[in-house]
Amino acid sequence: MRFTGTALRLTIMVGEGDQWRHKPLFTEIVHRAHEAGLAGATVLRGIEGYGASNLIHTNRLLSLSEELPVVIVIIDTHDRIHAFLPQLDELVTEGLVVLDDCEVIRYVGRDLDESTAGDEARPGVQEER
């Protein structure tokens, strides 16, 4: 699948040690995004940061932290992202959730079996083949 055009970027910032039912919170968010059929999700591990607690977390040797920042980025159509937000209300009890309008210039997936699910039209996004 390919698409270009106006989209919405969902950015979720949580701590590396945040859990959901004994597994990492970021893993649960990515799996739910996948189940919801969102275009894709990426998890980025920060090397240093602070948030609402005002405590600096870092990976420097002298101050090892198990609570490094983790950022999950998901980009899809406005409708699909907004439909996913109620799941985040359940999952993210501490952290930051941000929405940004963005323009997708290029999004090209691997050519798998053309008959597989996930190649359906995305309203509001121009598809190319």
Rank of each mutant, 00 (worst) to 15 (best):
M1G: 14
M1H: 09
M1V: 07
R2Q: 15
R2M: 14
T4S: 06
T4G: 01
T4C: 07
G5I: 01
T6G: 02
A7M: 00
A7W: 04
T11M: 04
I12A: 08
G15T: 04
G15D: 05
E16T: 05
G17V: 02
D18L: 07
W20I: 00
R21Y: 04
K23Y: 10
P24K: 09
L25V: 10
L25E: 11
I29F: 03
V30D: 00
H31V: 03
A33L: 01
A33F: 03
A33E: 03
H34C: 02
H34G: 07
E35T: 06
L38F: 09
L38V: 05
A39Y: 03
A39H: 04
G40F: 10
A41Y: 08
T42E: 10
T42W: 06
L44G: 01
R45F: 10
R45L: 12
G46A: 07
I47Y: 03
I47S: 11
E48N: 12
G49P: 15
Y50G: 04
G51F: 12
G51D: 05
G51W: 10
A52R: 14
S53Y: 13
S53A: 15
N54M: 14
L55I: 14
L55F: 09
I56E: 05
I56V: 15
H57Y: 11
H57W: 02
N59P: 01
R60P: 00
L61K: 08
L62N: 04
L62E: 10
L62I: 06
S63Y: 08
L64R: 13
S65L: 10
S65H: 06
L68H: 07
L68T: 07
L68V: 04
P69I: 08
P69G: 10
V70H: 08
V71R: 15
I72M: 03
I72E: 04
I74W: 03
I74G: 02
T77N: 05
D79L: 04
R80W: 06
R80N: 12
H82P: 00
H82V: 12
A83N: 15
F84A: 03
F84Q: 08
F84Y: 11
L85E: 07
L85K: 06
P86Q: 01
P86Y: 02
P86A: 00
P86G: 00
D89I: 01
D89T: 13
E90Y: 01
L91M: 13
L91P: 03
L91R: 10
V92H: 14
T93P: 00
T93F: 01
E94P: 05
V97C: 12
V97G: 11
L99E: 12
L99R: 12
D100Y: 15
D101V: 09
C102R: 08
C102H: 07
C102N: 10
E103L: 14
E103R: 13
V104M: 13
R106Y: 14
R106F: 11
V108C: 12
V108L: 14
G109K: 12
R110L: 09
R110C: 00
D111W: 00
L112F: 13
L112C: 03
D113T: 02
S115W: 05
S115R: 08
T116S: 14
A117T: 09
D119K: 14
E120H: 08
R122H: 00
P123N: 10
G124Q: 07
V125Y: 06
V125K: 13
Q126E: 14
Q126C: 09
Q126P: 02
E127Q: 15
E127C: 08
R129Q: 15
R129W: 08
